[in-house]
Computed example of a mutant assay.
Amino acid sequence: MNHYHFGKYTVHVHSALSVFIGNDGTELIIYNDKDDYAVVAVFRWVSEKQILRVVNKWRLTFEHDSQNNVFIHYDPDYRY
């Protein structure tokens, strides 16, 4: 897993996925770059509320803990 600091969270992303953090660090885009370059998730950091908002997710599940960790689960071999 790869780890990214985003807002006050550490996001742990499956190594088969790529991550782009843009818009001054307020959006985190996760995409699959194997065959279709499909965006599988978009997260937004809302600084005034200190929360991480899920804008969109596809082909993955995620969980978080009380230590401000977010774990992205993805199975690259599963045929959706």
Rank of each mutant, 00 (worst) to 15 (best):
K8P: 10
E63R: 10
Y74L: 04
W45I: 08
Y9K: 10
E48L: 06
K57F: 09
V13I: 08
V55I: 15
I30H: 00
N68Y: 14
N32W: 02
W58R: 14
G25K: 03
Y37E: 06
V42L: 03
S18T: 08
Y9N: 09
R59Q: 14
F20R: 15
S15R: 13
N69Y: 05
Y37R: 08
A38F: 07
G7M: 09
E63F: 01
S47L: 08
N23L: 12
V19E: 01
L17Q: 00
H73D: 08
L52V: 01
G22K: 10
T26I: 10
K57P: 00
K8E: 09
V42G: 03
I51K: 11
I29L: 13
L17D: 05
D33P: 04
R53C: 10
D35H: 13
H73Y: 14
K57E: 12
R79C: 13
K49S: 13
P76H: 05
I51N: 04
D75S: 12
Q67L: 15
F71S: 01
L52G: 02
H73V: 00
Y74R: 05
G25C: 03
I21N: 02
D77T: 12
R53Y: 12
Q50A: 14
V46S: 07
V54C: 13
F71G: 01
K34E: 15
D77Y: 13
G25F: 07
V39M: 07
N32F: 07
G25Q: 03
D35P: 06
N56Y: 15
N68K: 12
D35L: 12
E48Q: 14
I21T: 08
H12T: 02
H73G: 04
Y37D: 11
D33G: 12
L52D: 01
Y37N: 12
V70F: 05
H64S: 15
Y37C: 06
W58H: 15
V11Y: 04
G22F: 05
D75N: 15
D33R: 03
D65N: 15
L17S: 02
V11D: 06
F20L: 15
E27V: 11
P76T: 00
K57T: 11
R53L: 13
V70G: 08
V70M: 05
H5E: 14
F6E: 07
R44F: 04
H12R: 05
I29E: 04
E27M: 11
